[in-house]
Nucleic acid binder design. Structure first.
Lengths: 197, 197, 197, 197
DNA sequence: AATGAATGAGATTTCATTCAT
DNA sequence: TATGAATGAAATCTCATTCAT
């Protein structure tokens, strides 16, 4: 006699991932505005009702997807972070890592941009998401102290270090830009020129 | 001889402007996703049907609004353009003008960002919109030639000159950033350090 | 040349009545619980969307219908009210009027009962609805003063005067009861015995 | 010879009662219309699927709950029935018992009222439920024969005896009515006046 | 017996657009 | 030109019920 009481059908990790993947793909294809729960469900191969087992509502689905993307991006980029190197080298490395992460996962980037420019964006705890970049801020702080980096507000430093990257890889803004090693090198050098003392 | 005065009622410029204003305001208030034609009509004080007299459909309304905003921004910013000044001064002036234009009309900026990150964005002729910045490109070209500015692709120069500005004024990204003369000065100086030879 | 600017299609009283009629009929047929907006629309011969032109939402439709029914009932019953007659005669007349109103419009009664036993019921201003019965209360008051009627709380008097009527005509409770003149006479005489001194 | 003890797990009485309790509570809180099987399950602390082990479907659950309530009410009220007392005393006692039962279990009453005004109501065998009141009917019959009680149809007698009670304790109809001994006394005396010869 | 996952069907509501005047 | 009414289509979400273990 077999007793299998415990093994009730269990929330399916694969299905949950399929839903997230479908969400990202669909937003890439038809945009945030037109992406409905039904369409996401169809793409994921599940019933619309099933999505509501995994997510409280549409908002929850989108916010969760965004947080997952941002968390992955942060972890991936900061993996390269090595404070034992010279300040400049560390910043360059992180920047290049960001470049290549985006270049490898353009879909995630498109979703994130559309999300960030939607009203849903107010629902995420930015502080929590940005916590992963704390070491970077400390490094910049240290650079300022060591008179290597300009003594200006942190947000301005960040703007010059990373905004150009986002602008360049954004296909809406620069449809023809290619993420080549040379372009990366050029951009990061210029960013350094902007912030260095 | 008969002289026809403008006896026929003519499309009402004021009404048309009211519709555009309502569109921009509504997108600011509730976002692109939730802005429906009926709500825009209500805010503009007209019937939904009236909007279809002035615009072919919703898409036409949104695209027209975007183009109007971008055209105004371009004109406004380039008004300050004076090629008789030194290259650096001209670029600084244009950058500051951009800063202050956005600071004075944050609503237009919010609409434009949401539009640019929507599928509608593919419907605008970017080349045409950017034509107004042609003098700027020529100036940069000239700066390169004169060995004042780094000889790198034009889009990289633009990215370093203006992306930090957009990032800083974007309330999603930097909710606490204040557009003060000092911050403007700092940012533009850093942008110049990035692109100057 | 004809100018008909003014005569835009106007909210259709007939259509609105059709929606209310359909609501009442449907609740009679399949009950409150199963009556959906779509089904009401279908019965009324309009699109579900049309209902939302006339009513803010389902709740508004149901509450409006209830108020209309109750107002009609009140007006109809009180039409017979004649305070110049002896107290007993007036109360008898009103009771008989109530009896015959319900007997003639059983559908309205069924709807009202189902509504009153639903959570929607909390949304109506009972005080306002009952205002029409003010003269009745004053008459009872007068009867008490004249030592014709028992000096007990008003709500107990009402309960004995009218609750038996509602119970008897309720087909759930008394499916076989017939509203005959004789039964009416009997019931009202007994109600009088209950309240008279 | 083999003796089977109750070795097989048996339907869990406690669980079944929990489901019924949850049903009644939920209908009290959110009404009949909004009470779904899932919500009932959650409140009862079981899986929705479990409910279908104990009840064929939702209808079965609701009808069973209603029958249980009505049966309990009947038994409880008739417990006091004592035909050896004078007719009047017996009727008074039963009425007071009804009053106090409802006052002690208002939740059961709310459920019953909502149920009775729903389409489910047609699914119960009223005759069976009312069988418990048979002695009461015989008593009234006897009273008529003895010329103590008016010789009118049984349902009219019942309506005058008990409808005022239901009306008074119904919080929708009389939100401010208090079930005090005095009010009970008054009401029952008046009911007696209505039916007595 | 017990259950969490799963779903087709259907709920309420809003949408972009057209109609009739 | 201008409009309020009207609507088919589609949106989000919930429901009663069944499945697989």
């Amino acid at each position: 006699m077999i007793i299998y009481y415990r093994a009730v059908r269990v929330k399916d990790e694969i299905k949950q991932q399929a839903i997230i993947d479908a969400t990202i793909e669909l937003v890439n294809e038809i945009g945030f505005v037109s992406s409905s729960v039904s369409k996401i469900a169809k793409k994921a191969g599940v019933s619309p009702a099933t999505i509501y087992i995994y997510y409280k509502n549409k908002e929850d689905l989108l916010v969760s997807t965004y947080i997952r993307i941002k968390t992955m991006l942060g972890a991936s980029v900061m993996k390269e972070f090595d404070p034992s190197l010279p300040v400049r080298d560390t910043l360059m490395t992180v920047g290049k890592s960001l470049f290549s992460h985006i270049a490898t996962h353009p879909q995630l980037f498109v979703f994130a941009e559309q999300f960030a420019n939607s009203p849903y964006q107010e629902l995420v705890d930015r502080q929590k998401l940005e916590a992963v970049f704390q070491p970077l801020m400390e490094l910049l702080q240290y650079g300022i102290q060591q008179k290597i980096i300009k003594d200006v507000p942190m947000e301005i430093l960040f703007a010059h270090l990373y905004a150009p990257i986002y602008a360049l890889v954004n296909p809406h803004l620069n449809p023809d830009f290619k993420v080549t090693p040379e372009n990366i090198e050029t951009t990061m050098n210029m960013a350094w020129d902007a912030i260095k003392l």
